[in-house]
Nucleic acid binder design. Structure first.
Length: 240
DNA sequence: CACCGTTTTCCTGGTT
DNA sequence: CAACCAGGAAAACGGT
């Protein structure tokens, strides 16, 4: 049923069957507590559990077997496209889940955020100089971080629209090709019509300090840092 | 309610 | 001159 090699972690025997059969978040959390994930880079949190469960389900396994076999000679995965697909699948399911949670949180009868959005849209407002000055926003309820968004663009050419492309895939360097486009895409994601590349790039620069991105020479060029995960083509540690 | 992390907004100054 | 880059500062906002 479950393909151990498809998951970016080692799992102990019997774990996956339990995982797939766990009905509630609490059950899943309890189960996860018994698993030591310290050996892996992947940072698992509760929200990932439904997707881990999905990966172990018959639904997932029906069409995908022998994913991510490792070459004995090179030690590198020979079926990387499958792994990329897998990551994309997990990402999609995660997003759907996030949307679902969001929808449950928002009572359609009292659409506070919709109201807020319409205010934002219909009322550019007679701003006083001060009002105009600071109108920040935090991360969205969709829980997608900017760097993950960029990573997903790099991994999903169909969404990408050539806004960003790999400069050196192995090094993790990438280049923003269309700065306006990527800002627009990010703005769509965050439902923020005021997003532009200036602001997006400032947000990217904040990642230098946390190690998610590293500085590299060259305009519009960035590099994934040690704290970034899921972007690698061959990640033996994850494939085990 | 306080605090934290992330992102947004704005800004100044420097570089390509 | 336009487009970027580097960061500081402050604020917004979701999550805990």
């Amino acid at each position: 049923m479950y393909h151990s090699s498809a998951l970016p972690f080692n799992l102990f025997s019997g774990f996956t069957a339990d995982l797939a059969n766990s009905a509630t978040q609490t059950e899943l959390s309890t189960l996860m507590n018994s698993w030591d994930c310290t050996d892996y880079d992947y940072d698992v949190n509760d929200i990932d559990l439904p997707f881990l469960a999905y990966l172990t389900s018959p639904d997932y396994s029906s069409g995908d077997s022998d994913i991510c076999t490792l070459s004995e000679s090179t030690g590198v995965s020979e079926t990387l496209p499958h792994f990329t697909d897998l990551l994309a699948t997990v990402t999609t399911h995660r997003k759907n889940f996030d949307q679902q949670v969001l929808q449950e949180k928002i009572n359609p009868q009292t659409p506070a955020c919709v109201e807020e959005m319409s205010i934002k849209e219909t009322k550019p407002s007679p701003v006083t100089p001060k009002d105009h000055k600071r109108r920040g926003g935090a991360r969205t309820n969709q829980s997608v971080h900017l760097w993950e968004f960029v990573r997903d663009l790099l991994l999903s050419p169909h969404k990408n629209q050539e806004a960003v492309r790999w400069e050196d895939r192995k090094e993790g360097t990438f280049r923003v090709v269309k700065s306006d486009m990527i800002a627009q895409l990010w703005g769509q994601q965050k439902k923020n019509k005021c997003m532009n590349y200036e602001k997006l790039s400032r947000a990217l620069r904040h990642y230098y300090k946390s190690g998610i991105l590293e500085r590299v020479d060259g305009r519009l060029t960035y590099k994934f840092g040690k704290k970034a995960y899921g972007w690698r083509e061959d990640s033996p540690k994850q494939l085990t």
